[in-house]
């Protein structure tokens, strides 16, 4: 895998991530996405167990990184990433889920489901 581009999200490094990911082979790109999804998923598990505040930022960063990943030929992955970014943007809207805990739970479940199906899709068959 090309080591020249950032492995963590930073607002000022978006271009480098986009360009770096584009240059990866399909196999490496999938492996990187799988790694990011697993990381986000493990953070989500901690987030749901009650350790909210600082984890939210980490999960957001992982999602932002995924948002910068382009060049997938698998349409399912592309569409699931679009869904993920929509849910993230909704969650980041400050007043979006105020007075709507039920909607928040649905959003969190949807995000978990998206990560699960992405991990399923990306995990190579043995």
């Amino acid at each position: 895998m090309n080591e020249d581009f950032p492995k963590y999200y930073d607002y000022y490094h978006r271009e480098e991530i986009i360009e770096g990911v584009k240059l990866l082979s399909a196999e490496d790109r999938n492996a990187l996405l799988l790694e990011k999804c697993k990381k986000a998923m493990s953070l989500m598990e901690k987030y749901n167990s009650g350790t909210r505040g600082h984890l939210r930022g980490w999960i957001e960063h992982e999602m932002n990184y995924i948002n910068c990943m382009e060049g997938f030929e698998n349409k399912f992955i592309e569409n699931q990433i679009s869904h993920l970014i929509f849910e993230k943007d909704q969650l980041m809207g400050v007043t979006m889920y105020l007075h709507d805990p039920r909607g928040l739970r649905i959003a969190m479940k949807t995000i978990e489901r998206i990560f699960t199906s992405l991990i399923e899709e990306l995990t190579p068959y043995e």
Binding site: K75, H83, F86, Q90, Y97, L98, D100, R102, I106, A107
Partner: peptide
Amino acid sequence: HFIENQITRLTFEMNLIDRKAA
């Protein structure tokens, strides 16, 4: 707010289906 948020989600899903190549 629940209805508002669900309508937003509905709109997003419809837009994606409506996009020709999605």
